[in-house]
């Protein structure tokens, strides 16, 4: 019988700054001390690992060094750490190599927690997945569409926002960058209403083409606008679900929607 993910993780833990404390059939407990870049001594986290199929989920045994729950810090409401999004990057722990990959994510996650606590905001927000599966799916579409418009455009994704407005009873979604409108999309038929305006891609100034004649950019701008709008709404629903459950903000982050709700 092949070793279980828990046995594999415990087996390689010594190479990853972790020490097994308990190894049961259904869970393991490890002491993990993520190394600092400087080699300075840091905190040791006592973590519980549970198996979910071939994957492993991890949480603090008791929420001592981390909040019990904080979506902004990627700690689910059951205390488990959301190290990655299974749908986009599945990670089965089947051997030492995949366990090492898992440990890499865990150790970086714990280091990022230190920065988040010090700065009161999650570092590299642009890199993190959106909150909740629906929002994350929209995010994937938005990122792909933004990439099609060029690397510079992709880099500015976090500066984009959308605004929904009805004109003559027709719902329209405006795509804005730093508050300035780029394009407008008709929500009813998912149509780019400004397709004859100059494209917004990285090469727009050089090519001088309208969006409808600039490769596939008409579709990219449309998809991007709709996906960003969907992302925003999905995240609002995500936090509404938290609020409905009566989950309160842990107070460790400055820009947390739950904080606003409770204020």
């Amino acid at each position: 019988m092949p070793p279980s993910p828990l046995e594999i993780i415990s087996g390689v833990s010594a190479a990853h700054h972790a020490q097994p404390i308990v190894l049961e059939r259904d869970h393991a407990i490890l002491d993990v001390a993520p190394p600092a870049v400087s080699g300075a001594p840091g905190p040791t986290y006592r973590l519980r690992i549970d198996e979910v199929g071939d994957a492993a989920v991890v949480r603090e045994v008791e929420p001592t060094l981390l909040p019990a729950c904080c979506p902004e810090r990627h700690i689910n409401c059951d205390g488990t750490f959301c190290l990655y999004w299974e749908e986009a990057e599945p990670l089965s722990v089947t051997d030492a190599k995949s366990a090492s990959l898992w440990f890499g994510k865990l150790l970086v996650f714990l280091r990022r927690q230190r920065v988040a606590a010090a700065r009161r905001q999650w570092p590299a927000q642009a890199e993190a997945r959106a909150h909740g599966m629906r929002a994350a799916r929209h995010q994937v579409v938005a990122e792909r569409a933004a990439s099609e418009l060029g690397p510079r455009f992709r880099k500015q994704l976090m500066r984009l926002s959308t605004r929904r407005k009805s004109v003559a009873g027709q719902p329209r979604i405006r795509l804005l960058r730093d508050g300035v409108r780029l394009v407008t999309v008709s929500e009813r038929d998912s149509r780019l209403m400004t397709k004859r305006a100059r494209c917004k891609c990285d090469d727009a100034a050089r090519l001088g083409l309208p969006a409808c004649a600039c490769g596939d950019h008409q579709a990219a701008l449309t998809n991007l606008t709709l996906a960003l709008h969907g992302w925003k709404r999905a995240e609002e629903e995500f936090y509404a679900a938290y609020t409905a459950l009566g989950i309160e903000c842990c107070g460790t982050m400055d820009y947390c929607p739950l904080r606003k709700e409770t204020a």
């Binding site: 689910n76 190290l83 909740g132």
Partner: peptide
């Protein structure tokens, strides 16, 4: 690699 943590819907 890019580090992309997630948050699950409650």
């Amino acid at each position: 690699q890019p580090f992309r943590p997630f948050s699950e819907t409650p």
